[in-house]
Design a protein around this nucleic acid. Sequence first.
DNA 1: TTGACAGTTGAGCAACTATGCAAGTAAAAT
DNA 2: ATTTTACTTGCATAGTTGCTCAACTGTCAA
Lengths: 124, 124
Amino acid sequence: MAVESPVKPDARYVDAECVAAVRITMVDRTEATDVADVFRVLADPTRVSIIHALLVSELCNSDLASVLGISESAVSHQMRELRLMKLVSAERRGRMVYYRLTDTHIRHIFEDTLRHVREDARGS
Amino acid sequence: MAVESPVKPDARYVDAECVAAVRITMVDRTEATDVADVFRVLADPTRVSIIHALLVSELCNSDLASVLGISESAVSHQMRELRLMKLVSAERRGRMVYYRLTDTHIRHIFEDTLRHVREDARGS
DNA sequence: TTGACAGTTGAGCAACTATGCAAGTAAAAT
DNA sequence: ATTTTACTTGCATAGTTGCTCAACTGTCAA
C-alpha cells in the first residue's frame, strides 16, 4: 500500500508516508493560533464559571461577583477579555451593565466538554 | 412570572431571580477547574498542531518536530504534558517512540472548534 | 452639589508556561 | 566496547496571566 507522496520521500523523515499524509491537511501556524485562542478563553476556572452562569441567564457585574464569590474588579477584568474575544456582549441599563453570551458555537463546545468531564468523573 | 426562589431574595442581589436560577445549575470550583484544564491543554498553538497532526496519523517524535518545524525537545516537553493529561499514548518501537491520540471526545471538541474558526475566517 | 453606588482601568505582583540548552538514558549499529 | 541515533529531562528564562488595590468614570438620589 505504497502511496505516491507529494513530498520527496528521502531520509529526512522516519515515516515519509505518514509525514506526507499529515502535511496535506496540516494547519498553518496562524490557524493553529486562532484555534488555541478560542480554547485559551475557556481555559480558566473563573471564565468557565462566568460562561456557565451566562448560559442560564444574563447578569450584571455585581451579581456575577456575588454568585462566583470573587471581586467585582476580577469580574470586570475577565469581562473585558470576553468582550474583546466577542464572546459576550454588554448592555448598560441605568447604573448596571448586563452581560450575555453572543456566541452559540462556544455554547456547544462548552456543553460537550462539560459532558466529557462529567463522564470522566463518573468513570474514574 | 415571579419564581419562588430557593435563595432568600433580599437586597444582596440586583436580580435575585436570575441569581437564584444561576445558582441551581452552577458548577462548583473544582468542576470549573476540570473543564478549564481540558481547554488549557488545547490552548497552545504547538499542541493544537500536534493534535491536528495526530488526527491524521501516528507519528514519532522526530517526524513531529520536522513537520511542525520545532525542536525535538519542544515536542518531547509537550508530549509529556499530553501524556500526563491522558490525551495521547506513547509506544516504543526500536529507537523511536510513536504517539497517537487516545481520547475521542477531544477529537470532536477539536474538530468543532476548527470548523468554528474556519467559519469565522470566511465571515470576517 | 454632594454623596453613594456600579463598574472600569492601570500598576504591580505572584504564579505559571513554553522553550532552548545541555546532560542524560535507551536501543541499534559499528 | 564505542559510537550514533532517538528521545527525555532538569534548569534557566523570557513571556504571559489572573488578581488585588487604588484611583478613576459615569449614573442616580437627596
